[in-house]
Design a protein around this nucleic acid. Structure first.
Lengths: 194, 194
DNA sequence: GGGGTTATTGACTGAGCATTCAAGAACTGG
DNA sequence: CCAGTTCTTGAATGCTCAGTCAATAACCCC
């Protein structure tokens, strides 16, 4: 190495994430990204190679951030409630109502590279697995035989729609109703199967 | 009138709808729209005025189409199940997996004119009202006092996420699980409150 | 301190975008 | 069949986009 980078990779990635999260992929131009990162086009392309790679970096960073925010020491139904409540809180407290970077990008991902689409799918899969784990735990703890697949689908639907409707500017009351509805459905299913 | 239009307004609108549904707003260029409608730029602009108005026409047409598809003579819980099953069927049977024009457009609607955003909100509101009506009917028919607001949120979440995850290419099994989960939650709530 | 390597700079390129418009074509009423 | 009106045509306009590159600057090692 001879001339060191003047910028911090992490800060640059954070800037990319902020821009793509707010504006989506297509509406984020290179000038937007230079503003968001403080880097000039040449530096951005030297570091990342293409706009789509910059987006992929942002997606991976976003998923890691969400993973951290949803990690909990709680178990079973408590953990499930905590996850869905956290999704509601994160969504509603954002004054810009940016929703979810991954879900926002799904509609415009049809023409993206397989690697990018896979990164987005990975985000969805991880959320689903997280919910499934807590559901299985809840069933085991209660000694109840519940339809995990169906309840997992319902909880996943709650998380997804909360994020989407958050971006749509729907009131927090609705988002909380979704989370409460899903948790109540799981609680009732557990109670009935015990 | 002196020189009559050579094209049919309805066919043109259908072409606009097809293009915007498949590609979203930003990625649909005027050349794409001339291909989809068979009209040249001049004719499109003479007839509609701007790309965003063309989009609004498409949204209104889309909402009318969905309204027709979800209208049923059934009542209460049967109607609710019918609506959610129809959403699943429409979503999964589309080989292009275009999802919902309205929900697809939400992330990129932030910079659109208030009129356009209102048209999109109108689509969401209409879906919510439809579900609420069937839920109230179901509660009245069963003589049950249920938490309509929460169950409405849950069913709305099911419909929204089905469409979004359809565009994401998720398997039909998941989409059906969401609908079944929501219907089961309503059924259980009714049974418990009777 | 100089040679070799890599980073930064910002103007530049070519393509594609939404939109316009002047010219010509098609029709109606008189 | 002509005057008047509206529609169609497709090239042109000005802009913005993603991506490039030659010049310059910064640094390390010897």
């Amino acid at each position: 190495m001879v001339r060191p980078r003047e910028f911090d990779d992490d800060e640059a990635a954070e800037g990319l994430l902020g821009a793509f999260w707010r504006h989506g992929y297509a509406r984020t131009s290179i000038p937007t990204l230079t503003d968001a990162t403080g880097l000039l086009p040449g530096s951005l392309y030297a570091a990342f190679g293409s706009k789509e790679v910059m987006f992929r970096i942002a997606v991976e960073r976003y998923i890691a951030e969400i993973r951290r925010a949803l990690t909990t020491e709680k178990r079973g139904l408590d953990a499930l409630r905590h996850v869905l409540d956290t999704v509601v809180r994160l969504t509603a407290k954002d004054p810009e109502r940016r929703g979810c970077l991954v879900l926002n990008a799904i509609p415009e991902s049809t023409t993206m590279a397989p690697e990018t689409r896979q990164a987005l799918q990975g985000g969805l899969d991880e959320m689903r697995r997280l919910l499934r784990g807590h559901l299985r735990e809840a069933a085991a703890d209660a000694g109840a035989r519940i339809d995990v697949e169906r309840l997992e689908a319902l909880c996943f639907a709650a998380a997804v729609s909360t994020r989407v409707l958050g971006r749509a500017g729907q009131p927090r009351r609705l988002l909380q109703g979704i989370a409460d509805g899903a948790v109540a459905a799981v609680r009732d299913a557990l109670a009935q199967a015990t």
